[in-house]
Design a protein around this nucleic acid. Structure first.
Lengths: 235, 235
DNA sequence: GCGACGCTTCGGCCGCCACCGCACGGTGCG
DNA sequence: CGCACCGTGCGGTGGCGGCCGAAGCGTCGC
């Protein structure tokens, strides 16, 4: 006999306790919607197997799906689900260097990810941490007694013409532990707004098929102007 | 073939994907060290089964153990592990009312837990949320732009003679989503210090064998004096 | 020293589940 | 209309893991 709470916790954890499902959720951390076939090929399992996994993840509330024609698009259900995957992935940590198969391809992909990437809907990697660090250093973000924007920080967002949604249940600011840097970076609604702004204005652009980002030439100038970040030093 | 990160995430999730192990971790959220036998009885499995589960949890880094004589004491490894269990449990949520076996015993135990309890090492339940709410209302805690103590909040801790450790990698303040209230309450080093202070000064005392707390008569006066909290209204 | 007790190790059993191949229905395209 | 394609349902298979009971080991107390 088990306590109901234990059963529910176990059921939730079981969704991520399979390597294939875990890898699917990690792929979906890029914030986009993938088709079932894409995820099947990405994880290297048959279509029927992937379909089964996706049904379980959707049923468990971790994923949301939309059907369009003959495609089944699937994405992380909400920011809470994304936060959950992030938290567990951060705790699990990257595989020790010796364990992972090294090749020129994967090594350079890893370096690109460590440099700059999205984490669901906000900036991560060295770029994300540099942004967080710079905002803290300039008194826009307070980290010594928690993790919150200061009044100067609010003014900075207004100055940059980055709209901050004050509505909704989503917290404005949240700390997200960076996979590779092992330091917190800015998440929450403000982190998402900043990321969207940077992508729209082409301060950085997606690099490759995954979550990696690349700072553009004119973005390099703008990052320095806005926050004093030397993007070249991130390489 | 799976990405190493996916495998590691799955391995971590698998630790909590079993109802018995999940219930063990929930029990350990009270912050105390339990013996293997206590956990075996609590979860209703045989001693050998419990031993096996504990070995896996320790091996996975979620639990830490100390052997004393013929006893094996086990506790959550660190605040990160506790935070992980809390996060998953909050996301899993309480079982719908219809599903759980109702009895007078469990119903009154549930009410006691909802009123006031510890959450690993800080205050939770209606009491924990009331404390957080009161601190926010008094300008000691800022929740509108994140979750951080204000300068007035730091002064309040000093005034109350509650020592705040400024050392260590543990964040001073963290928001922890309350199981029952579905609102954030104060966690982190400051939350733990406040809880320790309240227990030492007998503002509240453990009630029963679990994590439930009870506000004492003289505590009722002190909560009002310190933060304007009407402890009687929590009942 | 001897029994009681707490925990662990070892087999063995059983059920669950991840996976595949195949057949089928539904959609889009020519 | 017919073909290509994406996704789903089903039966079967293999392996992993949760569970127990029994035997063994160390510790504590009398």
């Amino acid at each position: 006999m088990h306590a109901p709470d234990g059963d529910r916790l176990a059921a939730l954890a079981a969704l991520l306790a399979d390597p294939t499902r875990a890898q699917m959720c990690l792929a979906l951390l890029d914030g986009r919607a993938w088709t079932a076939g894409e995820l099947a090929r990405h994880t290297g399992v048959g279509a029927s197997t992937a379909s089964d996994h996706l049904s379980r993840l959707v049923g468990g509330g971790l994923l949301a799906q939309e059907r369009q024609g003959r495609h089944r698009y699937v994405r992380l259900a909400d920011t809470r689900a994304a936060h959950l995957v992030e938290t567990l992935a951060a705790q699990a940590g990257p595989a020790p260097a010796g364990e992972r198969p090294r090749s020129l391809r994967t090594a350079s992909a890893d370096r690109a990810l460590a440099r700059a990437r999205t984490c669901y809907d906000h900036l991560a990697g060295r770029l994300g941490c540099a942004v967080t660090e710079a905002m803290t250093h300039r008194g826009l973000l307070r980290q010594d007694t928690g993790f919150a924007l200061t009044d100067a920080g609010l003014a900075w967002f207004a100055e940059q013409r980055i709209p901050l949604p004050r509505t909704g249940r989503r917290p404005l600011v949240r700390a997200c532990l960076d996979f590779t840097e092992r330091r917190p970076h800015l998440a929450g609604a403000a982190g998402a707004a900043l990321c969207r702004h940077a992508l729209e204005r082409k301060w950085c652009v997606p690099a490759g098929t995954g979550r990696a980002l690349k700072v553009t030439d004119h973005g390099e100038h703008l990052w320095r102007e806005a926050l004093g970040i030397d993007a070249a030093a991130l390489r």
